[in-house]
């Protein structure tokens, strides 16, 4: 396991570390359990995967069970992408892979060999914000902010999908090019849940970037 030395100790890290120390003292595994856990000695299967994240190539040897989300957060320390439900229901983990938005929690990292992945950090950073990030700030498209990286990655991809002519459930005529409307944006963003309920401002932010009135 890589030690996150590049991170200064945060309040969150201090609390998590403290909790782990306490747990180690109070629930040390009994010796008998260690002796009988024969399979525990065998390391879990790993596989090698190389992909590019925000323009930087990475070559990783991962437990095959590692999701793309966990690879980004726990191995590459790109913690902008959030883990919400971890079952593809909330959209907090949305990243863009080869131009398409996906739920990174429902994808095995080892399946992404050769892929080009863009996370919220790759869209823009403080000082060089992506116009969608800027619009979310201007329109107050968030409250607690936890779903925001997923919302923004999804929003950027949604405008791409509309431009590419991908129909949605509310597209009136399948043979016409879909338009950027509030109705289309609401439908297309339905895979991103915001429990604070910033939806109307999120639609305003996306519409602003698309140059239309929501």
């Amino acid at each position: 396991m890589v030690t996150p030395q590049e991170f200064p100790i945060s309040r969150r890290g201090l609390i998590a570390g403290g909790a782990a120390s306490v747990a180690a003292v109070t629930v040390a595994p009994p010796l008998a359990a260690e002796a009988t856990a024969g399979n525990a000695a065998a390391p879990p299967p790993t596989a090698r995967v190389a992909f590019e994240v925000n323009g930087t190539p990475h070559d990783l040897e991962l437990d095959t069970r590692t999701t793309l989300l966990d690879a980004l957060r726990e191995h590459l320390r790109l913690t902008g992408t959030k883990k919400g439900c971890d079952h593809g229901q909330c959209g907090a983990c949305t990243v863009i892979v080869d131009g398409r938005r996906i739920n990174s929690c429902l994808s095995l990292a080892v399946q992404h060999d050769g892929d080009k992945i863009t996370t919220i950090e790759g869209l823009g950073l403080p000082g060089t914000l992506h116009k969608m990030q800027q619009a979310f700030i201007v329109h107050d498209g968030y409250q607690c902010g936890y779903c925001t990286p997923g919302q923004i990655c999804s929003a950027v991809a949604v405008l791409g999908e509309i431009a590419a002519g991908v129909p949605s459930h509310v597209t009136a005529d399948l043979t016409d090019a879909p338009q950027v409307t509030a109705r289309e944006l609401r439908e297309r963003m339905s895979g991103n849940i915001c429990r604070c309920g910033a939806y109307s401002n999120i639609v305003d932010a996306i519409a602003d970037v698309a140059g239309v009135k929501a």
Binding site: T94, R101, A164, P167, S168, H169, L174, G191
Partner: peptide, 29 residues
């Protein structure tokens, strides 16, 4: 599949059913 021009023109039911299901993220995968 939902976006394919032939499917949208000749098999609209398939396009309509697909976009009625899941989310944009899931349909991409």
């Amino acid at each position: 599949l939902a976006a394919d021009a032939r499917v949208r023109r000749d098999y609209g039911l398939v396009s309509r059913a697909l976009v009625a299901g899941a989310s944009g993220q899931l349909r991409n995968k």
